[in-house]
Amino acid sequence: MNDVLDVALRLVVVFAVFMVLPLVVGQTEHKVMAHMQGRLGPMYAGGFHGWAQLVADGVKFAQKEDIVPADADRRIFQLAPAVALLPYLLVLVAIPIGPSESAVGQVIDAGIFFVLAVMGVGVLGSLMAGWASANKFSLLGGLRTAAQLLAYELPMLLTAASVAMAAGTVSLPGILNAFEWWWLPWQIVGAIVFFVAGLAELQRPPFDMPVADSEIIFGAYTEYTGLRFALFLLAEYAGIVVLCGLTTVLFLGGWHGPWGADGLGWVWTLLKTAILAFGVIWLRVTYPRLREDQLQKLAWTVLIPLALAQIALTGIVKVAIQ
């Protein structure tokens, strides 16, 4: 009985984190983006500096009519948002935020593989949406999503493999237990490649060609309204949380910090994740959208060679220190 309670409690906590953190990131994006553009951002909802803007948005989305285009493939069209969103919830289960056993939803032996595999599934949602909408723009969006995923999955996997090599394990808590501060400079190239590839996989600006709102009208999500559209948006922000959390765990040492590693480890994890999330927003505000050919070129001629070089470096250092 205790076990059941324990599992239930963990799931509830993970679900709560899953519902809250993306909204926090979203609100931060509203405000940070506004100030970076010399604006104030939302100021009214909730009274104090528009803190409840996203809650208000959610209520608005829930009130909207749920429309399925006449020619669309009904079932798949309706299923797609769930396929896009659920994988991130699953990934969140495996990310450890503190050193103790109770600071992770579920320890998974092949953690890296689990996380990357499930994140890859999330993209299927966009593909399904793109195809099932019966809309040219959606189809173009779907095609671009697929092309982007194929190009950026590889550097992501390679750099994750580099960390796994360094730690000698593929379990996420295992990697963090093996972490030393000098991994930071050692794996810095891998970290950058991982983060950039992750951004591209999430289709965040400047890698948002698949949803380019000014040319293909939000790509795969053109036909979506109301709650289903909100789910897609939520998936994007959950993706940011997951990517930042993963980068923190794999490359930035998670709960390790200059002081207070015992007991306050989770603060370090959250702090690093928050800083990375700020970076995601910052990049979005600063850079224009990459063209499709530039996207592919960046992945195949820059990121993958860098990732391979990182693996070689990891291997050499690993052999040298043994």
């Binding site: 940070v32 970076m36 553009q37 010399g38 910052w282 505000v285 600063t286 850079y287």
Partner: peptide, 9 residues
Amino acid sequence: GLAVTLRTM
């Protein structure tokens, strides 16, 4: 570019 946005913020 990053510096410009940060300064504006």
